[in-house]
Design a protein around this nucleic acid. Structure first.
Lengths: 343, 343
DNA sequence: TAATCAAACTAAACCGATTTATAACCGTGA
DNA sequence: TCACGGTTATAAATCGGTTTAGTTTGATTA
């Protein structure tokens, strides 16, 4: 594995490596036409490709950013990371994608690894458990952008959706269709902004329409209790007539359960999900969902991060919170059909 | 952004940086207990994290591998990359994921970028257009593993599925259900092994059962002609009674078309897809598919690559072709129900 | 007393780029 | 002939680690 180095090019072209370096960095000003051509020729003949590692060491810049997603099983995570990648690629950055798997230890290990790899910045959907570490890095001036989950103890750029409003729209839609017993299915685990805001929207809508909240209609699913919890929900003496799932993975769990139980949507129960996913419109009952602009969340996160990285005048940059609106995509899972997904 | 360097640790501990380096690399043999403790203490107090870029430069090893997928829109690509990531993470490697977007120019740019970043190896679903470049790298001893698509002009490890057999099983299944007019829907573009092998399996099954092939039943879809091609297929004077889609994206296109045309599956037409995807069983008509072990394809590719990277005795390593069997997952899209997905 | 040796540690070279300070060259005007 | 300035090119330092060859120290041996 012989690699061609800048010194090889220099020798071939009969100049010093400094000159070749100038050439590579397009500082042609103090270089004769003649020299320029000889270097170009030598590079071509040798198939020289500069060593980015050496360059990074000297420049203290890797043109690489780290993305840590909470759980790659969520179509949401995939979509966001796609947005990040596209934007970064266009702007000359590479992405190392890390899946924290909802595990704070994994997350911590990834943060450390990314630091050692000298990434220029990190985009993260934090689990919240390593916020002291993140805070420390942010305070040192290391660029960090948070997405999906808002944390009030961290002072940095954040990108997320208007979850309260999104959930509110969903529940309001169900109420307007005549539903009063509306279940909510969420993942178990620490109460992060996403979940609490969507729960807030749920309660707010119920309150607005004078519907009493019934805590038995709210279920938190973990890997182990999924079946029993859904079973207890569906076999209530007074079962829900509609169900709102708080994210894409929950929607899939609930749909799988209903399919197995031969429960029909929307005949037996109405359903709205949070997060649109690629096949949501092809399901047995095309799913009405609250859609987030997932791709744009990724793009915007990347944009903010790179802006932060490339702004050397650290003082002048204010932190921004970018809140995207959600959109209710009405399909057929609530029992009637409209022309368009506009709410 | 002050970074702690090895020299800072050395000064704090009152030793030379060589000794700290020895410590970091766990070469304790020639180090007194006392020194060891002092260094450990200094590292802790300073929160020192070694600079992996500097280390990589000296060691000529980045512990990073590149993965280039053909098109990240395919659930197949996502699943494979997940397998790669998991295996790599367990073995101390990081992954830079690149999406070639079925575009040879993008692919070429990514290969060059990965080389410049000095990745230790590449896992790629090649478009075929840059095989000379890949061949060059392989010849130089650079570790490359191909997946999904087989290329006979490249001598390196390959991991893919038994596509011919997979398609054969699908078509045989349809024939045994009484179908004689079976359409095949594939993506347009260069004829790669995946597509040609699946076409082979299709023809082989027809031939075996004495069914004449009708070229009008075979459609190649591009971004622009999708609707018209499917329209011409469905409005034939003698339309197909079954359709076989050659990959996950084609399945989604066809399903979307049928949904729009209110064509029912399996009542109006039977359907089998290639590649299982997360919601295939939740569709209006749960889709019968030929499943590939996507995650395992990723794991195996990573395993072969890392074995190759870590084998310094280059001579002794023979190239392997790992061919995974496919599995027919029988669901409801062909008009009858069985207990199990075994073919 | 001097030579020998092992243990514990270090100076300096090196990886492959970038950059700063400096040098060589050439033509012009005094 | 020499000083000067502008143009073009280079030597050497640097980034933060690893590693090799070697030094220091104190104890042991001849």
């Amino acid at each position: 594995m012989v690699k061609v180095r800048i010194i090889d090019v220099a020798q071939k072209a009969g100049v010093s490596k400094s000159t070749v370096s100038q050439f590579l960095n397009k500082r042609y000003e103090f270089m004769s036409e003649e020299t320029r051509k000889r270097i170009a020729q030598a590079i071509k003949e040798l198939g020289f490709q500069p060593n980015a590692i050496a360059r990074s060491l000297k420049m203290k810049k890797t043109n690489t950013v780290g993305v840590i997603v909470a759980n790659i099983l969520h179509p949401f995570s995939t979509a966001v990371s796609r947005g990040v990648e596209d934007y970064c690629q266009k702007h000359g950055y590479n992405v190392i994608l890390c899946n924290a798997d909802d595990n704070p230890n994994k997350e911590r290990a990834y943060i450390h690894m990314l630091q050692m790899k000298q990434v220029d910045g990190i985009i993260i959907a934090s689990t919240g458990a390593n916020n002291e570490l993140l805070k420390q890095e942010i305070d040192r001036g290391f660029p960090v952008v948070l997405f999906d989950r808002r944390f009030d103890d961290l002072e940095t750029d954040m990108v997320y959706s208007d979850n309260r409003k999104g959930a509110y729209m969903a529940i309001e839609h169900l109420i307007q269709l005549g539903h009063k017993r509306i279940a909510l299915v969420a993942p178990a685990g620490p109460l992060l902004s996403v979940r609490s805001e969507r729960l807030e929207g749920y309660h707010e809508a119920l309150k607005k329409y004078g519907i009493p909240a019934d805590e038995h209609l709210i279920k938190f699913l973990s890997k182990t209790n999924t079946y029993t919890e859904l079973e207890s929900l569906w076999s209530m003496q007074n079962p829900p007539t509609a169900v709102f799932t708080i994210n894409d993975l929950m929607a899939m769990e609930v749909l799988t359960y209903f399919k197995q139980k031969l429960v029909r949507i929307p005949e037996d129960i109405a359903m709205i999900g949070f997060d649109d996913f690629p096949t949501a419109h092809l399901l047995a009952s095309p799913l009405t969902v609250v859609a987030q602009p997932t791709y744009d969340i990724g793009v915007r996160s990347a944009e903010l991060l790179i802006k932060h990285i490339e702004n050397e005048d650290k003082q002048s940059l204010k932190y921004v919170q970018h809140i995207f609106p959600c959109q209710l995509m009405i399909r057929e899972s609530c029992g009637f059909r409209k022309k368009n997904g506009q709410s």
